[in-house]
Design a protein around this nucleic acid. Sequence first.
DNA 1: TTAATCACAGACAATTAGACTCTTTGATTA
DNA 2: TAATCAAAGAGTCTAATTGTCTGTGATTAA
Lengths: 125, 125
Amino acid sequence: MKFSKATNYALHSMLHLAATKSNTPVGVQVLAKKQDISPTYLSKILTKLAKEGMINSVSGANGGYTLSHGWESISFLDIIHAIEGKSSLFACYNHGPGCPIQKVMLNSEVKMEEELKKYTIADLI
Amino acid sequence: MKFSKATNYALHSMLHLAATKSNTPVGVQVLAKKQDISPTYLSKILTKLAKEGMINSVSGANGGYTLSHGWESISFLDIIHAIEGKSSLFACYNHGPGCPIQKVMLNSEVKMEEELKKYTIADLI
DNA sequence: TTAATCACAGACAATTAGACTCTTTGATTA
DNA sequence: TAATCAAAGAGTCTAATTGTCTGTGATTAA
């Protein structure tokens, strides 16, 4: 029961891109070096964000990644969902539908998600 | 990023014990059969709960487990912590101390924990 | 008192998820 | 046209999860 490191890398990459005022793309090497991981691995993580339309990838020499239009409204929850998926954190196996334990667990999970929805990367700049 | 199955088994075992009105101990076989897992495995999970003082183990013939005195005040969070540990869900690796991302993550986690603290097994009876 | 029942502990095994690396491919542009 | 880049696939290594099997010692019902 932990957030994955990939989620950490994704959030920090987004923060880096947001802190970069200019619109010139930031290469995966730069982002990877700062986080001390391999470019190929980070590339995979960023591809997930790109598929969700949160960032744009620019191919070619001096290419890299830029934030997509409307990035200011991307929440923490959006980024987390892009990396970890959207399925709920708790599953009841034996009890049938309407499990009272699951109700409590889901309700608690929603409280966390509500909070994660409130914050955007833009709030940290 | 999922709660473990062990947590599910622990919560359901607690619910079963609480729903058993009599004070006679419930054997691990009974609890395991209902949840369709092996008694030895469930025994390991229940031992964790016993070490935290949430349940009592009764050895000998017709032994088993009973809820400990004061079980009504045991929260969902207590049970989850007993199984999953108490460390936080998110860790920042590269950024130094005072990472703004971590602040948001921890804050959100606290919201979930506050909710899990509100509910007890007794609330489900 | 003896045999059954139980908790408990430790060793072991299988499966899955996490955290990567390596290599190739294909697009873009300096 | 050669360098630079993203993207995709296969493969690897490790750790955690999810168990099972076996043995030991305590307790008690018969």
